[in-house]
């Protein structure tokens, strides 16, 4: 090595780590964040959070956040497991043909009423017979969850059926024409851009309340995602096997099937698994706008302040999502 080379390198000018431009950009970002923070009540969030922490460690008398949390979470427990219905409200009720595990109870309720003649308050006791199914509500939630999962599965199938053939049209290296590429990519972008809750709201108006709107809203939205993921994988697939098959005289579609599909198959499976999970989570939400599934029940119970029921539904959703995570993870391991 020549020593003079080292001497020259010592005089090379290095760029400063912090420049005036860095400071100006940092100031602009801070001012923008501060302004946006005021608009989104970040200052209030900080104040309420400090209040809650203070209340927890005994420095503040009470906290709005803490009280709210105790009210909501406390109301959820114990979870509502049983289904209790007045027999008088059950059509064609047969006391000799009770459902398995169910029993009848007579309950006395006291109600205060105003006598329309004397305008005096009177307490009246009323005896009602109720049918108690000890795990009736759990079973109802399970039924609704199953409907939710079925909506999600069909939405995923629909998304797959739409996205799979479109993926090669939306891949730059396999599309037959630039115009087709633009149209397919644009359409998948539109499908992704419209949130499923909004499309569910519109589809409920078209198809009526129920799972059809849910399946379509989720299926179309996630088809946009799958199409983009699939197409990008086709574009990024290893070129060497494709070139080799092309050199052996295989047409584009044969190369796509024989060289690209085996390479991208594993990631396709991972995308479909992710979309299924996402659809199950979303299917619990879109029920809120009447598109079927457990969301409808959740919304109804929430509006009636039945937090015990809400707790049961939330626990069931959590359990389902965790189970799905484990099952699909193992399935993927076996298939790959």
């Amino acid at each position: 090595m020549n020593a003079s080379l080292h001497d020259n390198a010592a005089t090379w000018r290095l760029r400063p780590i912090i420049t005036a431009r860095t400071i100006i950009v940092a100031c602009i970002v801070l001012v923008a964040l501060g302004y946006a923070g005021r608009r989104t009540e970040m200052d209030k969030l900080a104040q309420l959070s400090w209040q809650a922490i203070g209340s927890t460690i005994g420095l503040a008398p009470q906290s709005q956040v803490g009280d709210g949390l105790v009210r909501v979470v406390g109301g959820m427990f114990p979870l509502q497991l049983a289904e209790v219905r007045e027999t008088a409200r059950i059509p064609d009720f047969d006391p000799n043909g009770l459902p398995w595990g169910a029993h009848l109870e007579t309950r006395t309720t006291t109600q205060t009423r105003i006598d329309p003649q004397t305008l005096e308050q009177r307490s009246e006791s009323e005896r009602t017979t109720v049918l108690v199914e000890p795990y009736g509500y759990v079973l109802q939630v399970a039924r609704l969850l199953l409907e939710t999962i079925v909506i999600a599965v069909w939405a995923t199938v629909l998304a797959l059926l739409l996205a799979f053939p479109c993926a090669s049209l939306a891949a730059t290296n396999y599309t037959p024409h630039r115009l087709i590429y633009t149209v397919v990519r644009g359409s998948s972008g539109v499908l992704r851009a419209v949130p499923e809750l909004i499309s569910a709201l519109l589809l409920v108006l078209v198809f009526g309340f129920g799972p059809i709107a849910g399946v379509l809203a989720l299926g179309l939205h996630t088809a946009g995602f799958l199409c983009k993921f699939f197409a990008e994988d086709i574009e990024n697939a290893d070129r060497a096997p494709q070139d080799a098959l092309r050199a052996l005289g295989a047409s584009k579609i044969k190369v796509l099937r024989s060289a690209v599909l085996p390479l991208v198959g594993a990631s396709y499976l991972a995308y479909v698994q992710y979309i299924l999970e996402r659809n199950i989570r979303s299917a619990t939400v879109i029920g809120i706008v009447g598109a079927g599934g457990i969301g409808q029940e959740l919304k109804g119970r929430f509006e009636m302040f039945d937090f015990g029921h809400v707790g049961t539904i939330l626990c069931a959703i959590l359990l389902t999502v965790l189970t799905l995570e484990v099952v699909t993870g193992r399935l993927r391991q076996r298939l790959l």
Partner: peptide
């Protein structure tokens, strides 16, 4: 009737050995 063997290993690595050989008959 021209076939090519490349310098880099250019098989479809996720496909089976049989499938890779059959790819020679794709045309």
């Amino acid at each position: 009737p021209v076939a090519t063997i490349h310098q880099s290993i250019d098989l479809v690595l996720r496909a089976s050995v049989l499938d890779n050989v059959l790819h020679g008959a794709l045309s």
